[in-house]
């Protein structure tokens, strides 16, 4: 448990530059998604793919700019936990949609 990443004596920035960058990034990502959605320049599939990609970037922004994701006392167990959580979340959503497509086949 030697590699503690929670040292207090690191220089604390005088201006919350990281937080501001995060905020600006999240706004940009949101407006790009909105613009793409409203403009109807691409068909449904590709647009949704891009929008979902932007949403994934938003997760990264929240985690790294706001949530101090890499801070931990000892090994970063929460990183492993959240990673498995995300994999399982994708599995539940993807698996469910796949399993339940019987809807469209049976009729």
């Amino acid at each position: 448990m030697s590699q503690s990443h929670v040292k207090a004596n690191e220089k604390h920035p005088l201006f919350p530059i990281k937080n501001v960058i995060g905020f600006v990034l999240s706004l940009i990502l949101t407006f790009v998604a909105l613009g793409l959605g409203a403009a109807h320049i691409l068909p449904f599939g590709p647009i949704m793919l891009i929008i979902m990609g932007l949403a994934v970037l938003q997760i990264a922004v929240q985690l790294f700019f706001f949530m101090h994701f890499m801070e931990s006392d000892g090994p970063a167990y929460h990183v492993i936990g959240l990673t498995i959580g995300i994999i399982n979340a994708v599995a539940v959503i993807g698996g469910t949609i796949w399993v339940m497509t019987f809807n469209s086949q049976v009729h």
Binding site: N19, F23, L27, F66
Partner: peptide, 8 residues
């Protein structure tokens, strides 16, 4: 989004 920023 703004509230998330102010929370941070």
């Amino acid at each position: 989004l703004t509230s998330s920023f102010t929370g941070s």
